[in-house]
Amino acid sequence: MSSLVEISCVVNGTPTRLAVPPETSALALLRDHLGLSGTKYGCGEGECGACTILVDGVSVNSCLMFAVDFDGRTVTTIEGLAVDRASDPLRQAFVEKGGVQCGFCTPGMVVQSRHVLDKHPNAGPDEVKRGLEGNLCRCTGYKKIVEAVITAAAAQSAAE
């Protein structure tokens, strides 16, 4: 086992100091060490998007990221978005538009959608579909997820 590396970062708004093995993935750190199980393992290869988190406001596959690279960064997981009032319309739209079935892809979808809306506040169907191309869903056929994100975009701009 490699020696631990001390890092400090902000996870869902809480400044956190951690000692992590250098080969550990960010996904393993979140799930196994911090108990943030909302971020899912779907493939471990950056192909499915179930493990999507925001690092300094930008979406990444946490399975591809080294946990040591959290050092000095701001990390937001689904647990952070769940208590973020500004993301209420987004989560609500996923519920009300039927964007959730088995729900396993959902946290990654919501986090990536947050990033898409931050980047394109008035996102239309094409931008949303392209934005979600790295998030696989086996249940819904995506249509209702895309509708949810577009609905959230509209709700967000109406609120502004």
Binding site: G38, R91, G103
Partner: peptide, 21 residues
């Protein structure tokens, strides 16, 4: 009617605990 799934609010918050969790 168009009734949202009962378990959806918990799922969108990442609170649902699957076997892996």
């Amino acid at each position: 009617q168009r009734i949202p799934k009962m378990d959806a609010p918990e799922k969108v918050a990442g609170k649902t605990r699957y076997i892996q969790d």
